[in-house]
């Protein structure tokens, strides 16, 4: 009898571990992973290859730091103005968005009643899902005229009368320009940072909140003591991913930034970014060197985005709190 019983539970290891299913799964995961890595690499290599004419003509650093972008006469190309444009608009948007995004996340995840936080979360996701060309067209017809008339022109007139030294920094108050693009980028990345931060807050174990409460912490003190420190990895990674999105954002920026290819850029005046110059010029690029220069800009933009995303992953790992342990 007991012999029989032992036999019954003596399942063979292969059946236990579903050998064939396991293998098929492992192989397909491996193949898919390989395809992703291969595509990424292939893209980088072909971008570099297509842009190599410009990069060899002007030099790797020469192209990066070249300030001239002249597709009309001299055919000299340098990416520096666009790098300046991309870095200043995206870092500007990051700086402007960080505090509001965290504040909205704190309110949504910690303070708002359930039904309200539900609504806010859906709204945030909705804004994040609006195609950027729609935000661009809204910017063209609504936001740009508004900010020109209510902010730029009054400030410009004020500076003419009171601080003439400022006017060259402000630039022409035409609405289309660096500031407008930066603010639109801010609006576009706030939902991202907010959503990722809310997720990070929700992952904080309830024991952490309870521990702070039990010490006599008020609601805000619980957030400061337990919630934010515990979710710092997620918050930082979310911020980096938003930065990546700001760097790569093309349509809305191209529609609003005014598209000027020469430094210096001013606050109100027009400028351009790596993404905007590509979308604006690729159709008109007839000369080979112009086209390959655009490709090269694309290659550098690809590199920057890759670095930002890798940095996000690294930061998340470095600052993540796992199993109650900070590493």
């Amino acid at each position: 009898m007991s012999d029989n019983n032992t036999k019954k539970i003596n399942v063979s290891p292969s059946a236990l571990y579903g050998w064939l299913g396991d293998r098929i799964f492992a192989v397909s995961v491996f193949v898919l992973g390989f395809i992703v890595i291969f595509t990424t690499l292939a893209m980088a290599i072909s971008l570099y290859y297509e842009g190599s004419e410009a990069i060899t003509r002007f030099g790797f650093w020469g192209f990066l730091t070249g300030e001239k972008w002249d597709p009309a006469i001299t055919m000299e190309f340098g990416a520096w103005p666009f790098i300046v444009g991309t870095v200043s608009t995206s870092l500007g948007a990051l700086a402007l968005s960080f505090i509001p995004a965290i504040a909205i996340a704190v309110f949504t995840a910690e303070y708002a009643p359930h039904w309200l936080s539900h609504i806010i979360e859906n709204l945030v996701n909705l804004i994040a899902a609006v195609p950027s060309v729609v935000i661009g067209i809204w910017g063209v017809f609504v936001f740009t005229p508004w900010i020109r008339d209510t902010v730029e022109i009054p400030v410009y007139i004020w500076s003419l009368e009171n601080a003439p030294g400022l006017t060259p920094i402000l630039g022409n108050p035409i609405g289309y320009g660096m500031m407008t693009a930066t603010i639109i980028l801010t609006i576009m990345i706030i939902p991202f940072t907010t959503a990722l931060t809310v997720d990070a807050f929700r992952m904080v174990p309830k024991e952490q909140r309870e521990a702070a409460s039990a010490l006599g912490a008020t609601k805000w003190e619980v957030i400061r003591m337990a919630v934010i420190p515990y979710s710092r990895g997620g918050i930082l990674a979310g911020t980096m991913l938003s930065l990546g999105r700001a760097i790569g954002e093309t349509m809305a920026v191209a529609m609003l930034i005014g598209n000027k290819n020469t430094l210096p850029f001013t606050l109100f005046g027009p400028g351009s970014t790596m993404a905007s110059v590509i979308v604006n010029e690729f159709r008109e690029a007839v000369e080979n060197i112009h086209l390959t220069s655009l490709m090269a800009v694309g290659f550098y933009l690809f590199l920057i985005s890759l670095i930002v995303n890798l940095a996000a992953a690294y930061i998340q790992r470095k600052y993540a709190v796992t199993g109650g342990r900070a590493v």
Partner: peptide
């Protein structure tokens, strides 16, 4: 004092 240890891990 809770049943499970609950230090603030980053502090």
């Amino acid at each position: 004092v809770f049943q499970k240890p609950t230090p603030f891990p980053t502090m």
